[in-house]
Amino acid sequence: MHMNSAPHLLAEDRPEYERILDDALRHAHERPDLAGVGERLNAVQLRTMALDATELITSTAATEYQHYVRAREELRNPAEGEDQDASPGSTTDRPHRSGAGVGAVVTVLAPVLAGTAAFIFLLAGYLLKLLDPAPSFASTMVSAGWFFAVVTAAAILVAAVGLLATALRNGSTPQPVEDDEEELPEDVARAREAWRHALLERGILPFLRDALADPEAGPASRTPLRSANRIPKIGYSRPDFSSPDDGPAAGPRPTFTSPDFTSPDFGGPEHELD
């Protein structure tokens, strides 16, 4: 994960920086000055180095970027006000939306409820007709069951027509084409294009050329943020733990010899002294 990010580069513009970098690496073979991509350094290594050097690269187009951000903010402020003014009016659409929701619920539930009623009335009516004598309301229940059966069929037909109409309407509506380029006013679009051009020509391409021109280039040694000019050395060194020099001459060390434990000249009683 790359923790080095330019403080003046907003988070929403970071993907744009990476997109310009990827495009430059993708078309590097079309530039003679970048023909060495893949020999000393490959595209992945160059991309890693450029992401680590985001602060250094984007600083080359700081003026154009500030102008672009300022123009974009001036565009967004009135838009926020219009959104706030339009938000109270959006409540007027709620009855229409709720009405559409009720219609959808009725369209779905009507066949289910009518079919259930038709099944109950028909089953009960024909069971009552099996009795002897059959109750008088058995025929009425059978008629009611057939009535609900017709309602069920009509509800299913209406629901099918509604689904077909919705599908045709959605299919005929042109879907907006998703594009990375937002529809911006001319001044904002010009400011963004100026920043992109400056970022590519004065930042990304010179960085890639310098990285390829150095025969000892590498992802770690070519990272500008870790060069010796940017990281001062701390005035501290580890203490010298070397053995001290010979001190004052010491006297000769005493020698210790074991005592002479010779056996005494001692004999038995027959060897008494004269």
Rank of each mutant, 00 (worst) to 15 (best):
Pro174Asp: 04
Ala86Asp: 11
Leu168Lys: 07
Leu199Gly: 06
Thr257Ser: 08
Gly251Glu: 10
Asp52Gln: 11
Glu272Asn: 11
Ala61Thr: 03
Ile57Asp: 02
Met49Val: 11
Val161Met: 05
Ala71Ile: 00
Val158Asn: 06
Gly89Val: 12
Ser258Val: 07
Gly203Val: 06
Ala220Lys: 09
Val151Gln: 01
Ser221Gly: 14
Gly162Val: 15
Asn4Tyr: 15
Phe207Trp: 09
Asn42Asp: 14
Arg40Asn: 06
Gln84Tyr: 03
Asn229Trp: 12
Tyr65Cys: 00
Asp210Asn: 13
His8Ile: 04
His271Met: 13
Thr91Val: 10
Ala100Arg: 12
Val37Leu: 02
Pro174Cys: 04
Gly99Glu: 15
Met1Val: 15
Asp274Lys: 14
Glu30Lys: 15
Gly101Cys: 15
Ala167Thr: 06
Met1Tyr: 11
Leu46Gln: 01
Asp274Asn: 12
Phe148Met: 04
Val108Ile: 10
Ala153Cys: 08
Phe207Val: 00
Ala71Gln: 10
Gly267Val: 09
Arg47Thr: 01
Leu208Ala: 04
Ser59Asp: 10
Arg47Ser: 05
Leu21Phe: 04
Gly247Cys: 00
Asp265Thr: 09
Asp210Met: 06
Ser227Ile: 09
His29Gln: 15
Phe148Lys: 00
Ala43Cys: 04
Val102Pro: 00
Phe121Pro: 02
Leu34Trp: 10
Ala249Leu: 08
Glu216Ser: 04
Phe266His: 14
Pro176Gln: 07
Glu80Asn: 12
Arg70Ile: 10
Ala217Trp: 01
Ala217Lys: 03
Asn42Leu: 05
Glu182Phe: 02
Arg202Ala: 10
Ala191Trp: 00
Phe241Cys: 12
Asp246Phe: 12
Asp83Cys: 02
Phe121Arg: 10
Ala118Cys: 03
Ala24Trp: 01
Glu193Tyr: 01
Glu64Asn: 04
Phe121Met: 05
Arg230Asp: 07
Arg97Thr: 13
Ala24Cys: 08
Ser87Arg: 15
Arg31Ala: 04
Ala153His: 01
Gly251Ala: 14
Leu225Tyr: 05
Leu164Pro: 05
His8Gly: 06
Ala50Asn: 01
Pro224Gln: 11
Thr152Tyr: 06
Val44Met: 08
Ala228Gly: 13
Thr255Leu: 07
Ala159Lys: 05
His27Thr: 12
Ala211Met: 02
Ala53Asn: 07
Asn77Val: 15
Thr255His: 10
Glu73Asp: 13
Gly145Val: 02
Thr257Arg: 11
Leu34Ser: 00
Leu168Ile: 13
Pro239His: 03
Arg190Glu: 10
Val177Arg: 14
Trp146Ile: 11
Met49Ala: 06
Leu25Val: 03
Pro259Tyr: 02
Ser136His: 07
Val106Ala: 14
Gly235Asn: 13
Val112Ala: 11
Arg31Val: 05
Pro174Gln: 14
Asp52Pro: 04
Pro248Trp: 04
Tyr17His: 04
Ala211Tyr: 00
Pro111Met: 00
Leu34Arg: 04
